[in-house]
Amino acid sequence: MRSLRPLFFGCMVLLWPLVAQCAPQAGHTGSARHLSTHPLKMEAHSEGNLSVDFFPLPDGAQILGTQSGATLNLGKVSYAGQPEHTGITLKHSSQSFSVQTAIGIRIGTGNFAGETVQLKAWLEVPAEPYHIYFDNVPMTLQPQLVNSHTQLGIITRHELNITVPQNTSESQSAFRTMISLQVIRN
């Protein structure tokens, strides 16, 4: 008796392209109901990175620390005396005097071809009776926009101005403050 096995395999070989063509369509039809609803997840792609570094400038105050946290050392200043450290400028008026210095900030390292970030700044703690200005923007406890288009990848110059009322008492004269900066790519 002759085996039907060769005939079966022969039919399979001949019909295989037809079966292969129909299978995805069957699958597609089956999943069409699923595709009619939105997928739960969004598609996304990401780019770049951010970093913040502080740099002392030739005409600025001394800086301790550079990455994301730094301390500007202003030293002792008074209405009558000269600044203790270099890079500090005193300006006098009848009601107050102001302490001015500069700092360099670099946001991002690398070649960014004109890309920019939003730079905001605010005080961590109240600074009364002092008035603090960062790039001429008065600092408060609320974030303030300092520059909406700060260039990435280069050291930018920023000015700090602290106005000291002349009637500041001895007990209030121990000045220390904290400024927070926030950078977000545009």
């Binding site: 994301s68 301390t71 002792k76 961590e124 400024i179 926030q182």
Partner: peptide, 20 residues
């Protein structure tokens, strides 16, 4: 960034926060 610097008298602490 939570305060990473503790400014002493006569100094200004600076901290930077970054956002995506």
């Amino acid at each position: 960034t939570k305060s990473v610097v503790n400014p002493t008298s006569g100094s200004v602490g600076l901290t930077a926060s970054m956002g995506t």
